[in-house]
Structures are given as structure tokens and as C-alpha cells.
Design a protein around this nucleic acid. Structure first.
Lengths: 206, 206
DNA sequence: GGCAAAGTTTCCAAGTCGGAAAAATCGTGG
DNA sequence: CCACGATTTTTCCGACTTGGAAACTTTGCC
């Protein structure tokens, strides 16, 4: 997988990953204020200007690593058996993907949710990243169903499901209004979407 | 509606609206680069510092007026007959609301889409605004269905439908891959959602 | 080795942000 | 109607951020 890229490309990826990791660590340990070009660059031992060459903002840097990891799951979606209904493929891949987007552990999800709640720029960046993922998913779905991603609506609607489920779930979960574990909530909301949107009646309470 | 607020409050709202209008005009006429605190403030004849008191960023200023107008439609949703199924209420209010979010004319929608496509900060801000609207809609839906917005999933899932439809539609439309008028596309995607998400098969081509 | 391409660094000018305090404006009770 | 407190706007300004330009280093390839 990495055999077809040279040293230069590998170094670039390593630097990018290291910067993003450092940015995330700084945020969790010292708050988002601490994520400055100087601090992150110092942690990775490059110049601040290099940090800015890679990322346009601290928020982008913080989320980049998660975005990279989520891409892995998009590939997993692409790799599902050819005959499988798209919805089944989604249901299979989504819980893990969403958990990945939220961070490797629930603690990370809580951190991210908290920071986003009190930091508009972070929220905005997270939503933008989500949109990017949706675009990738739409392309995979179009590819697998033979739809035209440039002309058909269906791939985009289906692709929005993950973000859909994720945002709804995280909103609920982050507000601490439920004590169910996060993966359960993810599965619940996917099941609810699969069975159809509730049409005018509230679903049974959590 | 404005009778219970004094002159001070009215002036504040007028200033905010004027600043946002000026910011939007500047963007459409001279590009987002032209939307500086200086330029916008000059157009409204206040100090640049006042502009910054109202808005944390140019993007926020540009979108604020649209956000305010959309709030009107959320109120329209709240005002639908009490017995009406929520889905019907949504179907009734949504096309207009989405058109409003996109701008008063289709030309505005195109402008916004183009700027967002080439400007991450603008995209992020738009998505954040969308999230804000969704939260408001979720609250109205919860209120109307007797659900608990802090605990139930259904209001949040339904509330995401507008943004859902909007993003999918605008993505298609802005890329110029279809020649149908925007309102038609909005109605199509809502109908498609109402009838259920396509389960594993592509919808008929546009 | 040597040359071109790509990446990194230093330097720095222009732009942005927001605190502090003075000045202007508004609401209210005499 | 005025005067006083509360709120908003303005001026001033220092700290921070952003990204261009050019020198320098590393990598890819012959």
C-alpha cells in the first residue's frame, strides 16, 4: 500500500500525521488555546511555517488525523461484496466508522463534543470534515449502484445517513441526557433510519 | 412583534441587519476578499470595531441575515395546525425555507455554493449555521410531538431532513449537472425522503 | 556526482483580533 | 425637560495570525 510511494511522499505523510497527532494531544491536554503553530511545530520539531504549509488552521490540524482514519472505512465500504444491497453495506460499516470519526475512544468523543460545543470554529471544521466524508461515501455508493454521482440524488441521500446518525446521536449523548453507551446509540439510530423515518409520531423514548 | 422593544434594541437589530446585508453585497459584487471589517463598516457608516462587536468573522456576517430569515420559517413550522403530522408540516414549510437559506434568488444560491466550494471557512460557517437551524427545528418538532428533545432521537433525525435535502440538492445543482430549476429539485428530494430512503438500488436518473 | 523538482526554513509586511477607556446614545425617574 | 445610570459605539493600540518571497535543504533520477 505504501510501496508505490517514495521517501519524499512518506516523509510528507509522516510529518502531516505527526503534526495532527500533536495538535490533538495539545488540545486534549491543554485546551484548544494551546494549539498554536508554535506549540505544535515545536512538538514535532519543525518550523511554525511548515505547520502552516500543511494546515490552514488549528482546527483543520486537529481533525486531520481522524479524517484520514475515516477514509479507511470508506475504503471498507468500497470493498463490500458486489451484490450486497447498499443499505446492508452501510449498516455493516457505519458503527465502526462513526466511532472512528468520534475518536478512538469514547473519551475522545466527549472531548471533541465539548470543544465543539464551546468553540464555533471547531464545530464548523468538524461539520466541514463530515461533508467531505459524505462526498466520498456518495461516490462509493454511486459506483456500487451504477448511479451517476453527478446527476442522481439517491447516492447523496444515502451518503448523508452516517453524518445524519452521528450528529443526532452525539448531540444527545454529549448533553449527557442518556447513559447508554455510545455504540448502542449509533446502532439504534441506524436501525431507526433503516426502518424508515418516524412519520409524525415521536419514537418511543430512549 | 417589534412593539415590545425599545429604540435601542431596534437600532441594534438594524445595525446588525445592515452590516450583514452589506457583507453579502460586498461578497457577491467583489468576492469574499473584499469583505473586510473596514469595507463593511464603511458601507454602513460605523466603525470597524463595531463590525467586530457584532460578528466574529466575515463569514458569520455574510450568513447572519439569511440565518435570521430562516428563523422566520422555523416559527412558521411551529405555527402549523396542532394535529398535523410532523412530516406533513415539514413538507409544507421546507421548500420555502430551503430556498430562503440559499438566498432570495437562485442567483444567490449559485453564488453561495461557488464561494463555499472554494472557501473552506465559508463552507464551515454555512454548515455551522445549518446545524443551528436543525437544533431549532428539533426543538419545535419535539414540542409538537410531545417528545423530549434532550432524550429522544426522533426529533433530531427528522430535523436533519431539511439540511439533508438541501445539501444533497445544492451539491447536484451547483455542479451544473442538472438543468432543472432548484425548487423542483428540493421538492423531489423531499418526496424521495418521504417515500423512504432508496434501499440499495439507485433511484431513476434525473 | 550533478541537476531539477519539491519541501523546509527564515524573514517580514499586511491583516486580524479583541481589551481598555473615552465618547455618544438611550431609558427612566424625578 | 433634565440628569443620571446603563448600554453601545468609537478610538487607540499591542498581540497575534497569515501567507508571500527567497534562501536553503532534501529527494528523485540520470
Amino acid at each position: 500500500m505504501t510501496s508505490d510511494v517514495g521517501l519524499r511522499e512518506r516523509k510528507k505523510r509522516a510529518t502531516r500525521a505527526a503534526l495532527s497527532d500533536a495538535a490533538w494531544s495539545l488540545m486534549t491536554e491543554s485546551g484548544i488555546e494551546a494549539v498554536t503553530a508554535e506549540a505544535v511545530a515545536a512538538a514535532v520539531d519543525v518550523s511554525p511555517r511548515t505547520f502552516r504549509n500543511y494546515f490552514a488552521s488549528r482546527e483543520e490540524a486537529i481533525l486531520d488525523r481522524i479524517l484520514q482514519r475515516v477514509t479507511t472505512f470508506v475504503e471498507a465500504l468500497r470493498a463490500r461484496p458486489a451484490g450486497e444491497p447498499v443499505w446492508d453495506s452501510l449498516a455493516y460499516v457505519l458503527p465502526d466508522m462513526i466511532m472512528e470519526m468520534l475518536g478512538e475512544r469514547e473519551r475522545d468523543a466527549a472531548t471533541l463534543a465539548r470543544v465543539c460545543a464551546e468553540n464555533p470554529a471547531m464545530l464548523a471544521q468538524q461539520l466541514a470534515a463530515l461533508g467531505h466524508v459524505e462526498r466520498m461515501i456518495a461516490e462509493v455508493i454511486a459506483e456500487r449502484t451504477g448511479a451517476d454521482v453527478e446527476r442522481d440524488l439517491a447516492p447523496h441521500l444515502l451518503a448523508a445517513v452516517p453524518g445524519f446518525a452521528m450528529r443526532a446521536v452525539v448531540t444527545l449523548w454529549a448533553e449527557g441526557a442518556t447513559d447508554r453507551p455510545l455504540p448502542d446509540l449509533v446502532r439504534m439510530s441506524i436501525a431507526q433510519l433503516r426502518d424508515g423515518l418516524p412519520l409524525g409520531r415521536a419514537a418511543p423514548p430512549t
